[in-house]
């Protein structure tokens, strides 16, 4: 009900509160040392990490060492091609001390890294049962949205466009519909390449956006993080202020209601 607005505009995943609506990622940075100042500039309070086999040749520190303790970790299940693999990665991440958050990615299309909704749903069911706060990355689909609610998802993360393409909200009508029906927060994930696109998603009513590539690969990731943060705030404020839309209909051609006023 948008007729009655909450004063307090806090975002919740499960019962965990966030004041920032910009989620970020740790992939693709030229130097890991940029992550901390980027987080500071963007105000992001939730950041994704991935789990991989250790490469014996690369003697690098664990990525977690680069993330301030005040920022919550959102491990993803990237690399999983089935629900079972995603479940296994999630359990390992939790055991490793990353908390209860998990972003499910079950990817079966290696060209565009598109998610398998059926596998995602299955993994969501299992992990929500085990007490995880599950944020499933999904192809925008109405039926699956409802099934994910029923399975206990804490959010719905429809993709805006294929991962890393920076194409923006190519799935706009579908995401819009998901925003309308979703009972949990909707986070537009993947494809957001410019702050204006993040603002567009927020104006449309998305609860948050996740931006990784566009920040990490920009010339100045710290400034880009800040720019995205401002765009997300602007979009959110515009949504709450219910901006007047563009005028799309021309004035009367032939009167339809004249008969009502003799």
């Amino acid at each position: 009900m948008s007729t009655i607005k909450a004063e307090d505009d806090t975002l919740y995943f499960g019962d965990v509160a966030f004041s920032s609506r910009l989620l970020t990622g740790t992939g693709k940075f030229s130097s890991r040392d940029i992550i901390e100042p980027m987080l500071e500039a963007s105000g992001s309070e939730l950041i994704t990490v991935a789990l991989r086999r250790v490469d014996p040749k690369a003697k690098e520190k664990d990525i977690l060492q680069y993330i301030p303790k005040s920022v919550r970790i959102l491990p993803n299940t990237s690399g999983a091609r089935t629900a079972d693999e995603a479940v296994r990665i999630a359990r390992i991440a939790r055991e490793a001390g990353c908390g209860d958050f998990i972003k499910i990615e079950v990817i079966t299309d290696m060209k565009y890294l598109l998610p398998d909704n059926a596998g995602t749903l299955k993994a969501t069911e299992i992990l929500a049962q085990e007490g995880f706060i599950v944020l499933p990355y999904m192809m925008p689909d109405i039926t699956v949205t409802k099934q994910l609610h029923d399975a206990g998802a804490a959010a719905i993360m429809p993709l805006g466009a294929p991962i890393g393409t920076n194409r923006g909200l190519e799935m706009k009508p579908m995401i819009k519909r998901i925003i309308e029906i979703s009972k949990v927060p909707v986070v537009v994930d993947a494809g957001i390449g410019r702050p204006s696109q993040a603002a567009e998603a927020m104006e449309m009513g998305a609860d948050a956006v996740l931006v990784n590539t566009a920040i990490a690969t920009s010339h100045d990731p710290i400034a880009a993080g800040k720019a995205f943060a401002l765009a997300v705030q602007a979009g959110r404020m515009a949504y709450l202020a219910q901006m007047a839309g563009k005028r799309t209909y021309a004035e009367a051609s032939s009167p339809l209601t004249g008969f009502l006023r003799p």
């Binding site: 990490v49 086999r53 250790v54 990525i63 990237s78 590539t213």
Partner: peptide
Amino acid sequence: VELLSFVGGG
């Protein structure tokens, strides 16, 4: 034996 670690990812 699998040895894993957290790495950058989106």
